[in-house]
């Protein structure tokens, strides 16, 4: 990928992280790493977000909140699990209140391991997520086009595979 077609916005939620990964996610936004220059912004509103960055593992109390937030993010969206706790539970996997990684509740697209993750690996994860987001968007537009063709009585297989992105 050589350029970004859109400015992806990020929603960050701390599931049950120790803060280590959270402050590294924030460090990505600040002058040293500065992802804002690519148009990547941290938003507090799930309806504004494209990428769901989540740190820490799932426990009984935040299960519903993670699910709620995910359901509120408009499609297409990408979920990035940042830190080994979000991937599998990490050092806390045997704790009584930890159910495991984020993928126990919502589908995860990119796993970024590390304890704590370095900002470089978080940025790498986000860039990978952007590629997946683009694929999902293309597929979604294609699906919509096919549906419209079917409604118009045309053969949906006659649409070019590039989708409806102009």
């Amino acid at each position: 990928m050589t350029y970004l077609a859109k400015s992806p916005w990020i929603l960050h939620y701390d599931a049950s992280s120790c803060n280590g990964c959270d402050i590294e996610v924030l460090a990505c936004l600040t002058p040293m790493y500065d992802v804002e220059r690519f148009g990547i912004l941290n938003t507090g509103n799930p309806k504004h977000a494209d990428i769901f960055v989540i740190t820490g593992s799932i426990n009984e109390q935040n299960r519903e909140i993670v699910k709620n937030l995910y359901d509120q993010i408009p499609r297409p969206n990408v979920v990035v699990a940042v830190g080994i706790c979000a991937c599998s539970g990490g050092v806390f996997r045997e704790c009584y209140n930890v159910s495991g990684g984020i993928d126990k509740v919502i589908p995860v697209d990119v796993y970024v391991p590390g304890c704590a993750c370095r900002p470089e690996s978080i940025i790498d994860g986000i860039v990978t997520a952007l590629g997946i987001l683009e694929e999902k968007r293309t597929k979604m537009v294609l699906d919509v086009d096919k549906k419209e063709h079917r409604h118009a009585g045309l053969n949906p297989d006659h649409i070019l595979s590039t989708g409806g992105v102009q």
């Binding site: 049950s16 120790c18 280590g20 109390q61 806390f92 045997e94 704790c95 009584y96 930890v98």
Partner: peptide
């Protein structure tokens, strides 16, 4: 919302290893 229950992990980790948990 962030409760993990790491204090109970002392039963599963040796006291020297537990330094890493305490740090986290």
């Amino acid at each position: 919302y962030v409760h993990r229950g790491l204090e109970k992990l002392v039963e599963k980790r040796e006291y020297t290893e537990y330094v890493f948990i305490a740090e986290r």
